[in-house]
Amino acid sequence: MNAPAIQLSQVTRQYTRGGETVKALDEFDLEIPQGGYYAIMGPSGSGKSTLLNLVGGLDRPDAGQVVVAGEDLNQLTSSELADFRANTIGFVFQGFNLLPVLTAVQNVELPLLLTPLSRGERRKQALHALELVGLSDRINHRPRQLSGGQEQRVAIARALATDPQLILADEPTGDLDRDSASSVLELLERLNAEFKKTIVMVTHDARAADSAGHVVHLDKGKLERIVDNRLKAPEAGAPAEQEA
């Protein structure tokens, strides 16, 4: 059996806000297998984004262990974490986060600078990624010349460009209209089904959550349950069954 893509053990992350300590994640455990497509849901402040940040190596836990793609992230230096992100993770953000001064293809090419590819190879790979998301005709457009849905597809192309094992999406449909959201969700499903990418998506959108294989429900920093969408019922015997 393959090792899990993501494994969180007894992870605690707390913040101090206005003199008050808030536990964003509290002794949290989760395993996501390779090739899994997981949606993370929960009310605001439940710890969804904190979870994504920890898995993506953007933040560190106060306690516990975060292992992603076989790497114990606690053991990595800041510089090693940056390399880890470059090699292993593709990020898709709610606000797209494209650099406004660069064109679509330049934005997609950006993470490829961190690979040993030649200039020609980088361009070829970026164009391929844009073709995959259906934007071959928008390669020289700047972000402000694109619609929200197109921007998000460029962001997905950028996340895909380096062929990462894991795609982390933070509210990828949050700023999109219904049609654009549908096309983005279809794209993510395709990446999971066709390219076997492990996807973890934080969302408030029930429709987006339905497109994932599993839905992880959080509340107050704890795992509430995991729903297997394929069964359309809570997983029997799974940790999701363990109410917090």
Partner: peptide, 12 residues
């Protein structure tokens, strides 16, 4: 933008 670059894996 710097946050994005760092998230993508660019070093400080």
């Amino acid at each position: 933008d710097f946050g994005v670059l760092k998230a993508l894996g660019f070093q400080a």
